[in-house]
C-alpha cells in the first residue's frame, strides 16, 4: 500500500516538545514522565522555567528507557544508571569517530 511522500522531521536540539507531547510520543503518562524527571532520568531544557520544554532528541532516551524498563524490569534508579552509562559510551564513540576522521586513511 504505497502512500504519498512524507516529510521527515529531525529529532534534534533545535526542536522542542512540551511535557505532554513528549510523554505521548514516548508512550508514557504525564505523571510517569514527571516522576522520571524527578529521578533525573531526563532533564528539561531549563528546569527552572515552567512549563517545561524538552529538546526533541530526548525522545530517543525515553523510548530507550521504556524498552529497557520492559525488557529488563528495571526500576527508575537502575534505569537512570544504565541510561547514564549508555550515554557515556555514545559520547566516547563519537569522540573516537572524531579522532579517527583526523587520522590519515590507508
Amino acid at each position: 500500500m504505497p502512500s504519498g511522500l512524507s516529510e521527515a522531521f529531525w529529532l534534534h536540539e533545535h526542536y522542542q516538545f512540551s511535557l505532554d507531547e513528549l510523554a505521548e510520543l514516548a508512550g508514557l503518562t504525564a505523571v510517569e514522565l514527571r516522576h522520571w524527571v524527578d529521578e533525573g532520568l531526563v532533564t528539561p531544557v531549563d528546569l527552572a522555567a515552567t512549563p517545561w520544554r524538552f529538546s526533541a532528541d530526548r525522545l530517543f532516551v525515553l523510548q530507550r528507557a521504556c524498552r529497557l524498563r520492559r525488557d529488563f524490569e528495571l526500576e527508575p534508579h537502575g534505569l537512570a544508571l544504565v541510561l547514564q552509562l549508555l550515554e557515556r559510551i555514545e559520547d566516547l564513540e563519537t569522540e573516537m569517530r572524531a579522532l579517527r576522521a583526523r587520522l590519515p586513511g590507508v
Binding site: F9, L25, E90
Partner: peptide
Amino acid sequence: KTVKARIPKGATEGQRLRLPGQ
C-alpha cells in the same frame, strides 16, 4: 508497507527523524 520519506539535508551519523502518523 511502503513509505516514501523525504530526508532533509544535513543528516549526521546516528541522527533520528520522525515521520508523524506513519
